[in-house]
């Protein structure tokens, strides 16, 4: 099976008078259409691993490749271009730009990518919102949306450029159980219907259990990977 993402011997150390190892010796491979939940205690390196896999950070040792391309040799601009076209991020906070409507927030990554013309962009953005049950939120500012809707809008924005891989860092951390369930419903649908890959870092064991593949981190190391164990 082909891999969309591969990490080999990845270690990340924060330099300083007393260097801190965030993750160490990580080997991880992700196939298209795979849904992975990363769990572990606080400070185990879950988010750090996600930022490394999402090309927001660079490993101190080891290598990460996306769709077969080694990212070590990539410039910052090339990494940014890869994030723009192939990756989507969802964080614990929605981080929607408060000055823009929900629709405009979705249009921002599309405008930056420049793959579609204006009409196509708007059609795509509206379709995305509709698929997440947010048709009526298009013209509203983030402050006019509920917490669950903001997070769904953030997921829609992450999907705006049709990424192959969605990375979510505690996406349900600020949501109630019902909204948390809705978010994971969306992830499941993205994997099942659209064959996207999803990696979710979460503390929520109940929702994490819905992912077919479970990865557990302790002290920066993978102590369990259901795909291997």
């Amino acid at each position: 099976m082909s891999t969309i993402l591969r990490a080999e011997g990845v270690t990340r150390v924060l330099p300083g008078p007393q260097p801190v190892t965030l993750v160490r010796d990580i080997d991880f491979a992700l196939s298209p259409g795979e849904f992975v939940a990363v769990t572990g205690p606080s400070g185990s390196g879950k988010s750090s691993l996600l930022y490394l896999l999402g090309l927001l950070d660079r490993p101190t040792e080891g290598r990460i490749s996306i769709e077969g391309r080694d990212t070590a040799a990539m410039s910052e601009n090339e990494l940014a271009a890869t994030r723009l076209a192939r990756l989507g991020f969802v964080f614990q906070f929605h981080f929607l730009l408060p000055e823009f409507t929900t629709l405009d927030n979705l249009l921002i990554p599309m405008r930056r990518l420049g793959r579609w013309d204006e009409a196509e962009r708007e059609d795509r953005a509206r379709a995305l919102l509709a698929s997440l049950g947010m048709d009526e939120a298009a013209g509203k500012l983030p402050e006019q949306l509920s917490g669950g809707m903001r997070q769904r809008a953030a997921i829609a924005r992450a999907l705006a450029n049709d990424p192959a891989l969605l990375l979510a860092d505690e996406p349900t951390g600020n949501l109630d159980t019902r909204n948390a369930r809705t978010v994971f419903d969306i992830f499941e649908r993205l994997v099942a219907d659209e064959h996207r890959s999803v990696i979710v870092v979460t503390h929520d064991q109940e929702q994490a259990a819905r992912a077919p593949r479970q990865v557990r981190l302790v002290d920066g190391r993978i102590v369990h990977d259901s795909a291997r164990d």
């Binding site: 927001l56 910052e76 601009n77 991020f89 964080f91 981080f95 930056r112 924005r157």
Partner: peptide
């Protein structure tokens, strides 16, 4: 700062 972070995570370059 948060908006800048999200724009960078979305794929905006430093120059952007």
């Amino acid at each position: 700062a948060r908006d800048i972070a999200i724009l960078k995570s979305l794929g905006f370059r430093a120059a952007d």
